[in-house]
Computed example of a mutant assay.
Amino acid sequence: MDIAVLTIKIALPGCRSLKEKRQRMGGLHERFGRHPSIAVCESGDRDRHEASEWSFVVAAASSREVASLCSDIEDKLQRTVDGRVMEATREYL
Rank of each mutant, 00 (worst) to 15 (best):
M1T: 02
D2L: 09
D2A: 11
V5K: 03
L6K: 02
L6Y: 09
K9N: 11
I10V: 15
A11Q: 04
L12F: 05
P13W: 10
G14F: 12
G14D: 02
S17H: 05
S17L: 14
K19N: 12
Q23K: 14
R24W: 15
R24N: 13
G26K: 15
H29I: 11
H29F: 10
R31M: 03
F32M: 11
G33M: 08
R34T: 11
H35G: 05
H35F: 11
H35E: 02
P36F: 04
P36I: 12
P36R: 11
S37D: 15
I38V: 11
A39N: 06
V40W: 02
V40K: 00
C41A: 15
S43C: 15
G44A: 05
D45M: 01
R46D: 01
D47M: 07
R48L: 15
H49F: 13
E50R: 00
E50I: 00
A51T: 01
A51R: 03
A51W: 09
S52P: 01
S52H: 00
E53F: 03
W54H: 08
F56P: 04
A59H: 14
A59E: 15
A61H: 08
A61F: 02
S62N: 08
S62H: 01
R64T: 00
R64C: 00
E65P: 01
V66H: 02
V66D: 02
V66R: 03
S68N: 03
S68D: 14
S68Y: 12
L69W: 09
C70V: 10
C70Q: 09
D72F: 15
I73Q: 02
I73V: 07
E74K: 06
E74D: 10
D75R: 04
K76V: 04
K76C: 00
L77W: 02
L77V: 07
R79M: 11
R79L: 06
T80S: 13
D82C: 05
G83P: 08
G83R: 02
M86V: 07
M86W: 00
E87D: 09
E87W: 01
A88V: 13
L93F: 10
